[in-house]
Amino acid sequence: MNTGNARVTLLLAAVLLGAAGCAPGGGTAASTTAMAPPASASATGSMDMSSSATSGGSAAANSTAAITISGFAFGAPLVVPAGATVTVTNRDSAEHTVTADTGSAFDVEVKGSGGTATFTAPSTPGTYAFHCTYHPNMHGSLTVK
């Protein structure tokens, strides 16, 4: 009787310890380059939106791009011209942030349930990994051409 219980207990212990030793499964951040000077950012709670993603191009002060957050994910990596205006729409009920992993290239908070925010893409070309400061699994990348 005790032997049977011992086997069950040891099996469960092994499962528990095995689970605790799992490798991290979170997303990985893309590599970053030197950060550009901080860009201006603004946030609103309104539903107005927005625009299509753009890629390539030269001077892009009036170019726009969009990030749509849904299901606690930023979606596909985004490619934008330097200085483009990036609009972020949050379709989750929870608030999120779009925060550059290093430096202060951009950092905006986006209210939930359709809230939007905008920020200006860095002026220095490179790939900028970003994350949500509230939810450790959320990672994305923004490539500035």
Binding site: N5, V8, T9, L12, V15, L16, A19, A20, C22, A23, P24, G25, G26, G27, G71, F72, A73, S93, A94, H135, P136, N137
Partner: peptide, 25 residues
């Protein structure tokens, strides 16, 4: 509602499940 699993969340769910089974035993 949070339709994703990630390491911390999975680890806590596994700990809760294992805790429940161990406590039941």
């Amino acid at each position: 509602y949070e339709p994703v699993w990630y390491f911390e969340k999975t680890a806590s769910a596994v700990a809760e499940g294992a805790g429940a089974v161990l406590a039941a035993i």
